[in-house]
Each structure stands twice: as C-alpha cells, then as structure tokens.
C-alpha cells in the first residue's frame, strides 16, 4: 500500500547524510538542507502530519459509506452490531490505549537519551500491538464460524428486530453490507497495525544500536505519530461498530 511505504520512508528520511562541511552542522544527523536540528524535526513532523491527513481522508471514505448505509438501513445496522463481540472489542480498545501509552513513553525515553527505556517501551508497544491482532484473529474466526462473513454462506439468524418487526428477507443483503463494512474497516485498520508493528521493529533495531538520543529522535517521534493515529481510528471504530447494538441485550456474539 502506498501509505505504508510513505510511513516507512518518513521513518528513514532523517538518516544521516554526513555533515558535508556545513558550518551549522554540529550534529552528524543534520541533513545538509536543514538549518538546524529543530528545523529538521519540525519539517519531518509537518510531513508526517500531511501524510496522516491523507490517512484521515482514506478512512474517511469508508466512514462515509458507513454513515450513508446506516442512514438507509438503520435496523440492519443495529442488529448487525448486536452480533459483534463487545467484550473483545472493549478489550482491544484498552490494549491499544496501553500501547499508545508505551509508545509515548518510548518517544520520551529517546528525548531523555534513555536507550534502555526506548528498548523496553518499544518492545511493550510491539507486544500490545500483537495482542490486539491476536484478539482480532479470534474475533474473525468467530464470525466465520457463525456464518457472518458476507458471501454465499452468509446466514444471520432471523431474530426479531428491536422494534418487534421480523426481519424481512431483503434485510439479509443489508446485513451483509454491514458486515462488509465491518470487515473492510477493521481489516484495513488491522493492516495498519501490521505496518505499525513492522515500523516499530525497525525503530527497535535502530534503538538497540543506540541511534537515538536527546539530540536526534525524529524517527521515533514520527513513527509514534503513526501509531497514535491508528489508535485514534480504533477509538472511533469501537463505538460505531461494537457499541451501536450493545443495549439490545446480552448476546453471545
């Protein structure tokens, strides 16, 4: 995917170019076209935010589809959401919040030149990120078992709708639409998590080699921005997908 490349290019954009005899270049990590380390960090941060804006619009298109079809088929949306596993979704929300905390602390460790802190907090971030994907795997497996994956085998139980109306036959198509968007949104989000974990492994390898300190930590900082952005996407996915039908009563999933 184009944005995953952009993210990793961003992470590597600040690798050393050599001082090049520039009078301003006291730090070997300062690229020749920047005036100071502060300006270099500023430029990288701005570039990363521009990339994140394209990501906002990328996910925004799918959220738009969600809003539109929810407006057209509200009952199918409520019932579909009711079949999602709220406790697994909530667990993953907490797991991602934990990973965001460890990510922020990893960036902070780099800012205070703590190599040990960077390594441990990056490992914790990778562990939390992987835990998220493991939970996601079990959720997806459950959906396959219950025939809730859109396609020829899709078969959602014909229960009573919240307002007491029996689900009409054509509603099955609307429910497939909900689950299509569920798999698309969470699937693309999970793909971003995989990219994020690979990114963290690269940053971890650089941190182990002692590449980052208070004078140069741009790659940790902007990789952190990416990680937090993926967390923000989930912050919106959780209420929109899982909590929408939660009040309809206890359901096994």
């Amino acid at each position: 995917m184009a944005h995953s490349q952009a993210a990793s290019i961003g992470a590597h954009s600040a690798t050393s170019h050599g001082a090049g005899g520039d009078e301003h270049a006291q730090n070997p990590n300062l690229q020749h076209h920047f005036y100071s380390m502060a300006q270099q960090l500023e430029a990288s941060t701005l570039g990363m935010w521009v990339f994140l804006v394209t990501e906002i619009m990328f996910f925004g298109g799918m959220f738009m589809a969600y809003i539109l079809y929810r407006h057209l088929y509200p009952a199918a949306w409520q019932l579909g959401s009711h079949h999602l596993n709220v406790s697994l979704g909530a667990t993953n929300t907490i797991v991602l919040i934990c990973s965001s905390l460890t990510m922020a602390l990893a960036v902070r460790s780099a800012q205070v030149s703590s190599r040990k802190g960077q390594i441990w907090f990056l490992i914790l971030t990778i562990v939390f990120g992987s835990a998220f994907l493991v939970v996601k795997y079990f959720e997806y497996a459950e959906k396959f078992e219950h025939h809730l994956v859109p396609g020829p085998t899709f078969n959602m139980p014909t229960e009573e709708y919240p307002n007491g109306i029996i689900a009409p036959d054509q509603e099955a198509n609307h429910q497939q639409l909900f689950f299509s968007l569920y798999f698309m949104l969470t699937g693309v989000h999970a793909a971003h998590m995989v990219v994020g974990i690979v990114l963290m492994l690269v940053i971890l390898a650089m941190a182990i080699r002692g590449r980052f300190s208070a004078s140069y930590y741009t790659p940790v900082e902007i990789s952190g921005l990416y990680w937090h952005f993926v967390d923000i996407v989930w912050i919106f996915l959780f209420p929109l997908l899982y909590l929408l039908g939660a009040h309809l009563g206890a359901h096994g999933g």
């Binding site: 941060t45 935010w49 521009v50 994140l52 804006v53 925004g60 937090h228």
Partner: peptide, 23 residues
Amino acid sequence: YFMGLRYNTPLTKLVAVAGFFWL
C-alpha cells in the same frame, strides 16, 4: 497529549485541524 500537537508549530497544528475539517 500523546501526539504532542500542543508543542508543534502553528503550521503543523493548522494541517492537523485541516484534516478533520476536510472530513
């Protein structure tokens, strides 16, 4: 707080807000 946008330059803040504005 986590992304530290409050410490960034006005230009970066503008870009971040513009993203949500376009949405």
